[in-house]
């Protein structure tokens, strides 16, 4: 992409231990996670390079202890960084001092937490307006903007409730409203829906997509739920032991898992609901008749795939044909036989 990435991590390292900086400089390159562990250090983030672009939803996925939250906290500088660099819109924030950091967070960043991180002594409105208050905005502004945000997340009428008077889903709505109050460019969400019941989780995911459709933020979303990642992500970064195993679109990850570790996640996935028609386009094929939409999932066009008898199906974006996909491959995916691509 031509424009500078919003967030850019370059060979980012985060080690936990007695004296991580000194250790990192004298550590031989290519040390494995276990070797580092043997030296009594834990690699929270291990040599990560990653760009996040404007308006993109990047989901960082991994099991607990994989370093996904650590990576997020490096980007927000809630953790100090052991090695490498982080650039936000081209500005190096690796060693940004406290004052600058506060300024950055007050103007550009919003964050949602797994257990909501609400201040128990403040009402919904006071919680939402908290970042504005910290910026020193007038009481009137705080209130007006706070109410606006509460309305946005659908909590009108509960401005004066205290967090403990709300359900989990409602509390997280407050957390979301708070994180958006300052109109941040970058929105960090750290397992925002993990603490919620499955049904509520689904509802909140829809809410999240609705908001993003309106707001077009640049988003870093951390989750341990692969299905959630598939559902929300533009791109997914799968982490293991501090390092990124694979970073790609959901279609590609499902279609071509880069490592055995990644394929463990993809095995159980109903691929036809993930993979889009455009992903399967094969330049060698040609078809023009009766195209399917590029962003339709294979599952959505199942009937067509089963009933069609040609070898190639045309794919179109906004009415314009952009290529064709092999019907057999689509059929295999539909039938859950997509493993062929692995080998």
């Amino acid at each position: 992409m031509p424009q500078t990435p919003i967030i850019s991590c370059r060979n980012l390292w985060k080690l936990f231990g007695a004296n991580p900086e000194a250790y990192l400089t004298k550590m031989p390159p290519g040390h494995s996670y276990e070797q580092i562990l043997a030296d009594k250090y834990i690699a929270g983030v291990k040599d990560v390079s990653l760009d996040v672009h404007k308006g993109e939803i990047l989901v960082i996925m991994g099991l607990s202890g994989s370093g996904k939250s650590t990576l997020l906290r490096c980007m927000t500088r809630l953790h100090s960084i052991t090695g490498g660099a982080i650039l936000i819109e081209g500005q190096d924030i690796t060693n940004l001092e406290e004052r600058g950091l506060i300024e950055l967070r007050r103007s550009k960043m919003g964050m949602v937490f797994q257990s909501f991180g609400l201040l128990p002594h403040r009402t919904v409105l006071q919680n939402v307006a908290f970042p504005l208050e910290m910026r020193g905005q007038s009481k009137h502004d705080c209130r007006a903007r706070g109410l606006e945000m509460i309305k946005l997340v659908g909590l009108e009428g509960r401005e004066d409730y205290f967090p403990r008077e709300l359900s989990g889903g409602q509390q997280q709505r407050v957390g979301i409203a708070r994180s958006l109050a300052i109109e941040p460019d970058i929105w960090f969400l750290d397992e925002p829906f993990s603490a919620l019941d499955p049904l509520i989780r689904r509802e909140m995911q829809d809410e999240f997509l609705r908001l993003q459709a309106m707001l077009h933020k640049t988003i870093i979303f951390v989750t341990h739920d692969f299905n959630e990642a598939l559902r929300l992500a533009d791109r997914i970064a799968i982490m293991k032991e501090g390092a990124i195993e694979q970073c790609d679109t959901p279609d590609q990850i499902v279609l071509k898992p880069a490592t055995e570790y990644v394929s463990k996640f993809t095995e159980e996935v109903e691929k036809s609901r993930v993979i889009h028609a455009e992903t399967l386009i094969d330049p060698k094929l040609k078809a023009t008749r009766n195209p399917v939409a590029a962003h339709a999932t294979i599952h959505a066009i199942a009937q067509r795939i089963v009933e069609d008898d040609t070898a190639a199906i045309a794919v179109a974006r906004e009415g314009k044909i952009i290529g064709a996909m092999p019907r057999q491959a689509a059929f295999d995916i539909l039938m859950g036989r997509g493993d062929a691509q692995n080998n």
Binding site: R73, T76, L78, I102, E103, R105, R106, M109, G110, M111, F113, G117, L118, L119, F130, P131, M134, R135, G175, R178, S179, I182, F188
Partner: peptide, 9 residues
């Protein structure tokens, strides 16, 4: 962390 991310001094 919520406090820090809200830009508290």
């Amino acid at each position: 962390e919520a406090g820090k991310m809200s830009g508290c001094t």
